[in-house]
Each structure stands twice: as structure tokens, then as C-alpha cells.
Amino acid sequence: MKFGVIVFPGTKCDHDCLQVLREVLGQEARPVWHKETGLAGFDCLVLPGGFSYGDYLRTGAIARFSPVMETVIQYAERGGAVIGICNGFQILLEAGLLPGAMLRNRTLSFICRDVTLRVDNAQTLFSSLYRAGEVIRMPIAHGEGNYYADSETLARLLGRRQIVLRYASPEGELTERDNPNGSLASIAGIVNERGNVLGLMPHPERASEAALGGEDGRRLFESLIHSLKT
């Protein structure tokens, strides 16, 4: 499979994603500069984490108008697979490819640590190798990951099973204690209605090798590779 990893000014997790895709998963992957347009030949586009344009206006708000985003939007509308991680998720929200918005963490601080997540939908392109209800570990690293949507949107997300990952206790319960940033309904990751665009705050690329303390994130990429092959 061929992955494109999109690099905005201020993107910082591009190297990490490329390394996991190439070295750990043996896939073809190349960085895509944000000024590129007319992308072709990719099986999946990844919007990695970082502080695109310093996140100076709102997270993702300026990157959303980068030349490459036009193509990303078209690509997603044609059904191409898109993953937005952390800042990438924020950009997808700003671009309207996913519903909702991000607020500052309710603690008002940046938080970097491992969290436990419950897989709420194991039937998406990105989660087919997890078990439904399985609790997995991945790190988060963000200052604005407090997911918000109005009540109709939330009802739709729930009704259409668009919520893929939720912050949960090691036993799989949704508690305030285990919701690190105050996200609505403990939401950590969602897909669009069609199921081809995933946005998540946790960093699967940081949990893809045992040497770094966890491998639960790797299965997310493997799910996609598996899903698209079959």
C-alpha cells in the first residue's frame, strides 16, 4: 500500500508516522508537502500531529486552507481513506470532513501520557483487528483535545456508530476520572458517516513498537492495510 503523510509548516509527527509505516509495517510511504496539489496513487492519506502554523488562530484553522487540503477533501469525498492524528484530527474538523470541534483541555494544560481507550466500533476500516469493547493503550499529547459537538451531532454520532475510540478505565468503563481532557461522551476518535475518514487524538504511531512501551496502536494501521487488501 502507498501512504501519503501530509506535512504542513509546524507538523511534527510526520517522521514518526513515516517511520512506522515504512520500517515497522513495510509499506510504501512518502511525505507530501502542503503546497502539493493533484495527489494521485495513494491508498491512504495521513495528517499527522503537530502545531500547524503554530496553531496560532485555532488548532488546525490555518492549515485547513493550505493548497493540499483541496485535494484531501476531494480524495475523501471520493471515498479515499484518510487518518487525522491529533493536530490532523483538528484539521479534519476545521475542514468539515468530520463533525464537531476541539476546545482546550479542561485542565488548561498540555497533557502527554498513556491513556486507556475502549474500542466502541470494531467494524470500521481502521479498527477491524480490534475486538469490540477491547481496552487498549496509547499515548495522548495535546493541549486542545476536548471534543465538542452539539446534541444533535452527538446523537447522530452515537446512532450511526461513528464513535470508534473512547477514553475509558482499564475495565472499559467511561468515567470522568479516565477522561483526560473533558471530551464530550469521552470521545477520543470518530469516523465520518461513510467510514473512510478517521480522526483521533491518541497517537497510534507512538504505540507501534514494543521498545516504546506498547503496540496497540500498530493494529490501527494494520486494520486499514488488512481492510483495503480484502
Binding site: 488562530l57 476546545l103 465538542y148
Partner: peptide, 8 residues
């Protein structure tokens, strides 16, 4: 479009 995010 840019200065505010109408969602929030």
C-alpha cells in the same frame, strides 16, 4: 470561514 469556528 476563518476567524471564528461557528461550531463553537
Amino acid at each position: 470561514k476563518l476567524l471564528a469556528n461557528p461550531v463553537i
